[in-house]
Nucleic acid binder design. Sequence first.
DNA 1: CTCTTGCTTCGATGTCTGTCGATACCGTCC
DNA 2: GGACGGTATCGACAGACATCGAAGCAAGAG
Lengths: 121, 121
Amino acid sequence: MSNSEVVELSAPRDGDVVPCCPPITAGELSRADAEKMAAMFKALSDPVRLRLFSKIASHPGGEACVCDIADVGVSQPTVSHHLKKLREAGLLTSERRGTWVYYRVAPSVVAAMAAMLELRG
Amino acid sequence: MSNSEVVELSAPRDGDVVPCCPPITAGELSRADAEKMAAMFKALSDPVRLRLFSKIASHPGGEACVCDIADVGVSQPTVSHHLKKLREAGLLTSERRGTWVYYRVAPSVVAAMAAMLELRG
DNA sequence: CTCTTGCTTCGATGTCTGTCGATACCGTCC
DNA sequence: GGACGGTATCGACAGACATCGAAGCAAGAG
């Protein structure tokens, strides 16, 4: 039932602040915000995606081409599929340069998730 | 690599630091760590669970009984199912006091997720 | 003890998702 | 041009998941 409305999470630029969701301790999430944030968490809810993401995030220069990170134990189409999901969730951006496609982390979106998880302290 | 076995996620105490996973920028995740973290993110990857979680986190006193938060648009058994998942992921702890069951956030586990998302370039 | 209320567990069901091989696409090099 | 290597899409399928109603349990009231 919930698949009718797909959130448009078209690749935020580096530097934008995602206009979503104060710390969870600040009050309960609206249904819409919950769906947006859940989509982001869902993107990181798979071990393969998490490893791809960490490989990119920890790669020198903050970016990596698919060939650098594809060794995660699944087939190439599956890697591509997962990268697409991360991109659609706004967590990664991609850019083709010549033969290779480079991925990098979208800091603002990750920051939004981290901010949401800040408990008062 | 980091730590050994399935964390006994029964009830981390309030000041514990979960021994898992430095910031993603620090290096790529091991397969085992990726699975552990993915399980936590997966727990928050559902809008209903996210709303339940935020209701508890933002509830006065830091805890809430099921009856306080059950109004999220799904049946009561479904609420219970989701709370169980959050509990199994280590994000919530529960305690029965008389008639009611109280849930509260496990701060250390949430902090571990937040820490992992710190990008601080 | 019996009834009621709050919560959990069980069983069934329809949908979503991770995975693969095959194939199409896109740049580069010869 | 054609061949080739790096990525993306497609189609199929098994396993996982969210959801519900019904039934089970626990604790308090009468």
